[in-house]
Design a protein around this nucleic acid. Structure first.
Lengths: 248, 248
DNA sequence: GCCGATTATTAATCGATATCAATAATCAAT
DNA sequence: ATTGATTATTGATATCGATTAATAATCGGC
């Protein structure tokens, strides 16, 4: 299956020149296409995992279960994201991943990707750049959980999802598909479900969001950003390599 | 100044073969050595930053200030860490970094490091692996802030610091130098200073820590780990490159 | 060894948010 | 359409931890 139009390719095209050669070599290492139904476990905590799964469509969550039964969601996985980062870089998975909607993805073994990095170092750099992006998102979550009020947290998170979906062409300018239950949102934001519910109503009352079932609309993005102190992040470009790049 | 014994080299030696050639090429891109006094701003929020600073000795914190005056510390920077990850990969710094002790480091421009990655792709992979490690630590902080009780948070954080210091040979088996004031610990863990203080006393009362000024002793690491549900993470090895690596 | 500044400690109050519990609405599958 | 399961909403109560404030201890510089 060709990678043309794959949201992962859309994403990395901002960072490197995805010419025919690069696209072909990436396509060449893909082992298979996969799908998973909603609620399917993609990565089990403690299991070994050595694949990179590039999400074509659908949503998933990375999470951790604590012994007292609480769950903390570390991040949500959207189209264009890589299931298996950073899990596949560890001996055993330090958390779990489960699909929250039907999902389709392309798979390659980490070792194949690494081989590609030796041949075409740009792919290694792209991964580093994406990891930096990931780290920045993670950092925002830390600020969210540590020091922002619940309403700011929710506002910030919605803006983040919106921007990430826009980046891969999966959202409109002021609305997007939000397939996360309040149970999921609560576990992302470190809140209880009843409280999250009340906070959502606050945002609705302030006319900062309009939501019907899975559709989330942001009629006043500027206002939301002000509330959340949200600042979009722009990745810098990868410095150019040797002028005459060894053609491979 | 030679990089032999540099904690960053210690750290990446677990991941790649730091033979003379690799060591030399890394040394070659270092632009200078630097030092910073306690309280010196290393990275200013919103400024441009394009250098990688490899910490030789000393401690720093990455943090974000909110408009209500609250501060959230995203991570602490220890010997062997890279100031400038992930900041240097963005147009403008999305947070600030300040030294909390006197600090010494080696500096190279990000562009030089990238050039090195084109020549020796292993360096790019190492950066990706370190980024994955960083992401895992970040994830733990998210779990900490979102779902762990204050006492578990503190226990978890102390164990993390201890392990990270051990990794670069900067801690003993059951004790280490902890140059972080309670104000800093509170802002790492999303707590108020008075509450953090009480939580520390709890840990002392439970005989899980013994602390005098800057020296932190962990007389019962197993107990601490049980309390915090701490699991050390092991990075997998980087898959080998082409068998005959182009000698450069 | 002294002094101002920083850091640690203690205590009292108050409010935000978890918890628990019950009900309503929605969804998905037969 | 019906039904069981999931998800959303509402309300009452209890508690954890922030806030504020005051004091004690420690540190760093001269």
């Amino acid at each position: 299956m060709p990678l043309t139009g794959h949201p992962f390719v859309t994403k990395i095209s901002r960072l490197m020149d995805m010419n025919a050669g690069n696209l072909d070599s990436l396509e060449a290492i893909m082992e298979r296409e996969g799908t998973a139904a909603k609620r399917h476990d993609l990565i089990v905590h403690g299991a070994e995992h050595r694949d990179l799964c590039f999400v074509r469509s659908g949503y998933a969550i990375r999470y951790r279960l604590l012994r007292n039964g609480k769950r903390q969601i570390l991040n949500v996985i959207l189209p264009g994201d890589v299931i298996g980062f950073p899990v596949s870089f560890f001996d055993r998975a330090t958390y779990a991943v489960v699909a929250v909607s039907n999902l389709s993805y392309s798979v390659c073994p980490l070792s194949s990707y690494v081989r590609l990095c030796y041949e075409r170092p740009q792919f290694g750099l792209v991964l580093t750049w994406l990891a930096a992006r990931e780290a920045a998102i993670c950092a925002e979550h830390i600020v969210n959980l540590g020091r922002r009020t619940p309403i700011e947290r929710l506002a910030h998170f919605l803006l983040e999802i919106h921007d990430r979906l826009l980046e891969v062409g999966c959202a409109e300018q002021t609305r997007f598909d939000l397939p996360f239950s309040q149970g999921i949102l609560a576990d992302v934001l470190g809140l209880s479900v009843p409280h999250l519910n009340r906070v959502m109503q606050e945002l609705r009352a302030e006319r900062l969001i309009v939501s019907t079932s899975r559709l989330m609309e942001l009629p006043d993005i500027a206002g939301l950003r002000r509330l959340a102190q949200y600042q979009p992040v722009d990745l810098a470009l990868i410095p150019a390599g040797p002028t005459a790049q060894r053609g491979l």
